[in-house]
């Protein structure tokens, strides 16, 4: 009876070209990376130099987007802030993957009691919402960027371990792995040759989508004052700085917000594009 139903899940036309979606994301990504890497060398003004005589100045040739409440160049702060926001995010996601993937490989491959214990612990940690956990860690260890990063890593690695674990478990029981075992391949070789290629695409998709989420978490917590501390030009912290002035000078919060929005959008586009392309199921 299902024959009269051809694939319903076709993609709407402006998303039809999957490659276009990825391309958009990749172009964004390149722009963002370039900005992050060379931005700090080409910014017109020093992001930390306050100039009280130029407070809340409108955009001019000297200050492309005007100045903030301390007379600092908003444009320069945004560009340099990209480095801090994205750098932290990249570091966090990389750490998470480096912790999560090996554990997932080992647990999935060995299985048994180790696996059961892990799943229990994972459930326990996941019951703690990421955001609350960040608040707990920031609360007990003091608000700082480092503590914020620790708390995100503490929660996030589990997702990677789970994904890798489930793939390894499915693959482990397949004939070709058994054949490789019988053929005398070492465990390490089996993991490297047969398991690793299988986990690359789901993990990449997960990581790409996570980058957006991590950026949002970091900036939200920085906005609360629990992350980057002033005067660091981090986007969330910039928003927090600008808040008292935003009735008179809304651009103080509009620009950093837009920056966050577009960067997260870029990674979400890329992540969705990759997910559709590789047909990775969202978990």
């Amino acid at each position: 009876m299902n024959i009269q139903m051809p694939r319903i899940n076709r993609v709407p036309f402006f998303f039809k070209n999957q490659n276009l979606l990825i391309q958009c994301g990749i172009i964004f990504f390149i722009i963002i990376t370039l900005t992050t890497l060379i931005g700090p060398f080409i910014v017109p003004n020093d992001p930390l130099t306050a100039n009280m005589s130029e407070r809340l100045a409108p955009p001019s040739s000297a200050y492309p987007l005007g100045t903030d409440h301390m007379g600092r160049c908003i444009f320069s702060r945004l560009i340099v802030g990209a480095q801090s926001t994205l750098g932290i995010t990249a570091l966090v996601v990389a750490t998470v993957a480096l912790i999560g993937i090996p554990i997932g490989l080992v647990i999935g491959y060995i299985g048994g009691r180790l696996d059961t214990v892990f799943m229990r612990v994972a459930d326990g940690i996941l019951a703690l919402p990421e955001f609350i956990l960040a608040i707990a860690i920031a609360g007990f260890l003091g608000p700082s960027l480092t503590n914020l990063m620790i708390s995100i890593v503490f929660v996030k690695w589990i997702a990677y371990t789970r994904v890798v674990r489930s793939i390894v478990i499915t693959e482990r029981n397949k004939d070709y792995v058994q054949a490789a075992k019988v053929g005398g391949s070492s465990n390490w070789k089996i993991i490297r040759r047969h398991m690793f290629p299988q986990i690359v695409s789901p993990v990449l998709v997960l990581a790409t989508l996570d980058i957006g989420k991590v950026i949002l978490t970091i900036s939200s917590l920085s906005y609360l004052g629990l992350g980057a501390q002033p005067p660091a030009p981090e986007w969330g912290a910039m928003l927090n700085d600008g808040r008292p002035y935003f009735q008179s000078a809304p651009e103080l919060m509009i620009y950093p917000g837009l920056a966050i929005f577009f960067v997260v959008l870029a990674f979400n586009l890329m992540g969705e594009g990759l997910r559709d392309k590789w047909d990775v199921k969202s978990r």
């Binding site: 928003l239 808040r243 979400n268």
Partner: peptide
């Protein structure tokens, strides 16, 4: 949904207040 997943909600709040 893409917008919703990309927008920081505190920023959305700020824009709405403004």
């Amino acid at each position: 949904a893409l917008i919703g997943a990309s927008i920081p909600n505190f920023w959305l709040g700020l824009i709405l207040i403004y």
